[in-house]
């Protein structure tokens, strides 16, 4: 006799949590793509949010510093306005990584397209 257990799955919840996993890696690519023009933390968060990339500040701000440490971004303090802000922009190395990631992204989309068509 074969025993089988069927779990009740909340579909909406399952999609939400899996989608979060899917999106996790795309935040870096989105940042690298947007930072061809220099931007500061909060403004970038707003731009990402408006573009539909959901990310929390407490994830984004440390991420920007990490990318800077890895040499993919450069930063500069702008003290022209009343509130000094740290502006990030993409470095030459970052641009190369971005182009590579865009290639990877298209490959992924092609692969998934192929797989889902066959299914």
């Amino acid at each position: 006799m074969v025993h089988s257990i069927v779990w009740r799955v909340d579909t909406a919840e399952a999609i939400a949590s899996q989608a979060q996993e899917l999106r996790r890696g795309t935040v870096v690519l989105a940042c690298l793509a947007l930072l061809t023009t220099p931007q500061y933390g909060y403004a970038l968060l707003e731009t990402l949010d408006a573009a539909g990339v959901a990310v929390d500040g407490n994830t984004l701000y440390p991420l920007l510093r990490r990318l800077e440490k890895q040499g993919l971004l450069t930063s500069e303090w702008n003290t022209d306005e009343s509130r000094p802000r740290k502006f990030y922009r993409i470095s030459a190395a970052g641009a190369a990584v971005r182009d590579g990631l865009i290639g990877e992204w298209h490959d992924l989309v092609d692969t998934i397209d192929r797989l889902t068509k066959e299914a």
């Binding site: 500061y40 701000y61 802000r85 740290k86």
Partner: peptide, 20 residues
């Protein structure tokens, strides 16, 4: 080494968020 810089950025970010 990064305390001062992170602190400054964090203050600015919180102020930006508050303002918005």
């Amino acid at each position: 080494a990064s305390r001062e810089d992170v602190g400054r950025e964090l203050r600015a970010t919180i102020a930006d968020t508050l303002e918005a």
